[in-house]
Write a protein that binds this DNA or RNA. Structure first.
Ligand code: MN
Ligand code: MN
Ligand code: ZN
Ligand code: ZN
Lengths: 132, 132
DNA sequence: CCCGTAATGATAACGGTTATCAATCCGAGA
DNA sequence: TCTCGGATTGATAACCGTTATCATTACGGG
């Protein structure tokens, strides 16, 4: 059995991620931890986030600029996101309608083992008001 | 007014892109051009692809690994893609259903200036058969 | 033709991410 | 509680895709 050790670093990343309500980059989370007085290493943050994502404890997606972002989501099952491109505020979206469409579209063309990327980026109400 | 010059490089990129039926990376296209004997520079390929994408002559998306891929699409309007993650084969998809959903989802949550990323990655029929 | 300037391309720089590897320390077993 | 093997860490170098630089080339309106 693969042993999974409990280090304060791993816990620090989990907590830091939980304390945020939007998606964050590894570097952003690392900066936040350092600002809070932690001496955690950047490589560790990268490793831990990637691991949490694999295990399913965190969701990850790529920003339009190609940066990997992470988030500790409330809902456990498969879902998508509506993200503010300015402040990162995120709304979790469950859309059966889109799930069905994606599956049907793939099979209609004979594609197998299909996965989909469905994200909506916009300006949240607050940011919209602020930029008006 | 900004003038748009016709260089053999620009034409070479256009042709190389047209000759492919799947999405390609800038480096991949550059390599193909070099292999065909062209002496075009890598920076030029990057610039031209980005430009063709802005003008609308090419579509672009990010691979799951975060690399920018380009393609000269047949349909001119807004559409999405069903892509074979193995050979790159691409099927253009027009899904009014999803367009409506995306717009409604964003406005329902007060988000403005919303854009969406909708792509399906799978194995095309040929690649599915080959890996069986 | 001429010439102003857009375009090119070799190369350096950039930004995010991963690999290295010696030092650290977690935790199963004694 | 103590030990010790190996998982984990972190400073740093390396990696890789992409963009910035800037001297040189060459498109194209006049
Ligand atoms: Mn889905
Ligand atoms: Mn769409
Ligand atoms: Zn916002
Ligand atoms: Zn295929």
């Amino acid at each position: 059995m693969t042993v999974k050790r409990n280090t304060w670093q791993r816990e620090a990343v989990r907590e830091a991620l939980d304390s945020r309500d939007g998606f964050v980059s590894a570097q952003g989370l690392h900066q936040g931890l350092r600002d809070a007085g932690s001496h955690i290493g950047l490589a560790t943050v990268y490793r831990t986030l990637a691991d949490l994502a694999n295990v399913g404890e965190a969701d990850s997606l790529q920003s339009p600029e190609g940066e990997s972002l992470y988030r500790a989501c409330a809902s456990t099952g498969h879902h998508h996101h509506l993200i503010c491109r300015n402040c990162g505020l995120t709304v979790e979206i469950a859309a059966t309608e889109v799930e069905v469409w994606a599956k049907k579209t793939a099979s209609d063309h004979g594609f197998t083992d299909a996965r989909h990327v469905v994200d909506i980026f916009g300006l949240c109400p607050a940011c919209t008001a602020a930029s008006a």
